[in-house]
């Protein structure tokens, strides 16, 4: 099947071109955009003037949103990791013949519109919705407290939206673990808790690392949850970028913010992978 020295190149070429032109080159365009003269507009055109001050401006004006994005995404990722681990563990080791059914149920929400589902959260958390009523009956919430337009709502939405991205890689790595290893730990005097801590958890690290990345990265860039479930006090960096691009037309600042977000995420991912000792993921 390995005929021809150039077959590989021909097969790869179309996809490589597409990704090159519409994924790699755009990063340069974005970088160029971030260095535009901020006086330009869609109508008058833009000039790359090496206006590095765009970055300073962007950071000064939007540091809050940037910080909030990382913070919300971090919290959402941790909650996802806990919930996702429980679910993945249950499917891998406890579900028995229900395993496939549960897996399908994990994937199923993928196929229902992201926006429609998020709007459905708006309904669930609404001021006269049953969750708020219930919590108020229990006096866990005051009469005038709300869930919508709070960080809780936004983070709950993020957790909900990206949970499958945590469960699937975790399940993939848990499922590969030989149950006999856990039994061997028990045989060698490890209590179930220690067995989990010393054997199961380390062996599922690749899944956990992949899952946290797949949850954190899209959460940090998301603005749908902040927009639909939050208020202006929960604006994330995505809201700002989106707004600057489509409404204000301030391409220079938007570009600078995008580049900053990407740089921060790449730096965090690299650090995280180093720390977790799973370089082979990349």
């Amino acid at each position: 099947m390995r005929r021809g020295r150039f077959t590989g190149y021909w097969l790869m070429l179309p996809a490589a071109l597409w990704l090159g032109v519409f994924f790699v080159i755009p990063f340069y365009s974005l970088l160029a955009t971030s260095l535009y003269d901020p006086e330009g507009s869609v109508l008058t055109g833009y000039d790359v003037t090496w206006h590095v001050a765009n970055f300073a401006d962007a950071l000064r004006e939007h540091a809050d949103e940037l910080w909030r994005s990382l913070w919300y995404a971090g919290v959402a990722t941790v909650i996802c990791a806990v919930l996702g681990y429980v679910l993945a563990y249950a499917i891998a080791f406890k579900a028995g013949r229900w395993r496939n059914v549960m897996l399908v149920l994990v994937i199923a929400p993928f196929f229902t519109s992201f926006l429609v589902r998020t709007l459905s959260w708006k309904l669930i958390l609404a001021d006269d919705g049953f969750v708020v009523d219930f919590l108020q009956t229990l006096h866990l919430m005051g009469e005038d407290d709300r869930l919508l337009a709070t960080p809780v709502a936004v983070i709950a939405g993020l957790v909900y939206n990206f949970l499958p991205f945590m469960v699937l890689p975790l399940y993939a790595s848990l499922e590969k673990i030989d149950v006999r290893l856990i039994e061997a730990a028990g045989d060698l005097y490890a209590s179930p808790a220690r067995g989990f801590w010393k054997v199961t958890l380390p062996l599922s690290m690749p899944g956990l690392v992949a899952g946290t990345l797949l949850t954190f990265i899209p959460s940090a860039g998301d603005y749908i949850n902040a927009q639909l479930l939050g208020s202006t006090n929960q604006r994330m960096v995505g809201n700002v970028i989106q707004d600057l691009f489509t409404n204000t037309g301030d391409y220079a600042t938007a570009g600078a913010l995008s580049v900053t977000l990407m740089v921060i995420i790449v730096a965090m991912v690299v650090l995280y992978i180093r720390k977790a000792g799973t370089e082979e993921l990349l």
Partner: peptide, 26 residues
């Protein structure tokens, strides 16, 4: 090539979207 394929899955959509917009505009 293997690395480049991995990147779109690891980039925030907002960044990919704005990059592409930057390309189209320029």
């Amino acid at each position: 090539m293997n690395t480049i394929i991995f990147l779109p899955m690891a980039s925030p959509e907002i960044v990919m979207g704005s990059s592409l917009l930057a390309l189209f505009v320029s």
